[in-house]
């Protein structure tokens, strides 16, 4: 196990350095001048422009800038945002919990609905329920989620008034963030109704972000289940007269879960991509929206730092999934 872990880390480190080079050089290639953007329509004199560029270090040789940056990263310093003048790391950790909370809710939503749906569809293969569920799953899989979000806001919040439109919690409630996770913080605050309010704010974004993973998981569970159900030991168990419930619950499900776990792991990257759109639509203060805004503001430090930290998170999650996979399925343990 340890050797497996070390082997993976040996691959991760050069990849991470590659990622840092990409993140760094991309930013230098971006057209548009962040210094000029600071003044908008108001014109900045060339001398002043040069002065500010020098102060931000943009006038030094690119390799020096990179090494300097990398050295900073090693010490946990990802630079300072050009716009807000705040350290990028601080901003990242302030916004990251919101994205994690939303993503976790979405993935739980997808699993809780998707796995049972997939199992039922597999057991009742070919039935109306199977066709209806898989048809729905395919629609979900084909959904342009930015449009789906707008549609839900228009219908559920706008016309029916069932859920709040945006934000993480009603403004009535105020408590300093402890964990950054609104669901936990609202419980810790002890304020009546705060938790309920946090939940109601999460509903629509969760549905929107969870739609595609839900569809993928339902389809994946169904085909994994079908495969397992057709295997000899399950047929034997069935022939022995065990109830469907027992066969599925005890024998089939555990084996069917292996590909499902992999799918869930793979959805993390998909989630973060989806978070960009979902957060933009719901004004959710997370890192997806932060990145989109920073690209349009040409906030170099944030784009490169954000790219790097997001990539690190994805790489770590993939590593964790690999390890988990090894635990569930001893056959691939190296």
């Amino acid at each position: 196990m340890l050797r497996f872990l070390l082997g993976r880390l040996a691959v991760l480190i050069p990849t991470f350095i590659g990622v840092s080079i990409i993140a760094f050089s991309f930013i230098r290639l971006l057209p548009g001048d962040p210094v000029a953007l600071l003044s908008g329509e108001r014109v900045m004199s060339p001398e002043r422009h040069a002065e500010i560029s020098a102060e931000l270090g943009f006038d030094r040789p690119i390799v020096i800038q990179y090494l300097d940056y990398l050295w900073g990263v090693v010490r946990g310093d990802f630079g300072t945002s050009i716009v807000t003048k705040k350290p990028v790391v601080d901003q990242f950790f302030e916004l990251f919990p919101a994205t994690v909370e939303l993503s976790l809710c979405a993935i739980v939503f997808a699993i809780v609905l998707g796995v049972p749906a997939g199992i039922v569809a597999a057991i009742k293969r070919g039935s109306f329920a199977d066709q209806a569920m898989m048809g729905t799953a395919l629609v979900g899989f084909s959904m342009p989620i930015f449009w789906w979000g707008l549609l839900l806001i228009m219908l559920v919040s706008g016309m029916l008034g069932w859920t709040p439109v945006s934000g993480r919690i009603s403004l009535m409630f105020y408590f300093p963030p402890v964990t950054g996770f609104m669901l936990i913080d609202s419980l810790l605050s002890g304020q009546a109704g705060a938790f309920k309010s946090a939940v109601s704010h999460l509903i629509l974004p969760t549905i929107v972000l969870g739609t595609i993973p839900l569809a993928v998981i339902a389809r994946q569970t169904r085909s994994a289940m079908l495969e397992v159900l057709s295997e000899d030991y399950v047929r034997t168990a069935r022939a022995k007269g065990l109830s469907t419930f027992r066969v599925v619950g005890v024998h089939a499900l555990r084996n069917a879960m292996i590909p499902v776990v992999t799918t869930v792991g793979l959805q993390v990257g998909v989630m973060l991509a989806g978070a960009i759109l979902t957060e933009t639509i719901f004004s959710w203060p997370g890192i997806g929206k932060w990145m989109v805004d920073s690209v349009s503001r040409r906030d170099y430090a944030v784009i490169q730092g954000g790219l790097l930290m997001i990539a690190a998170v994805i790489m770590l999650v993939n590593l964790a999934v690999d390890l988990m996979y090894g635990l569930i399925n001893p056959r691939i343990r190296h």
Binding site: T15, G18, A273, G274, V295, L307, I314, M315
Partner: peptide, 24 residues
């Protein structure tokens, strides 16, 4: 494969977004 790993380390839409910002 390392280059592919690097590409996969970014969320696809975010990477595409930054690339388009570079290319115009």
């Amino acid at each position: 494969m390392r280059v592919m790993d690097i590409i996969l380390a970014f969320p696809s839409l975010l990477l595409a977004l930054v690339l388009v910002a570079i290319l115009g």
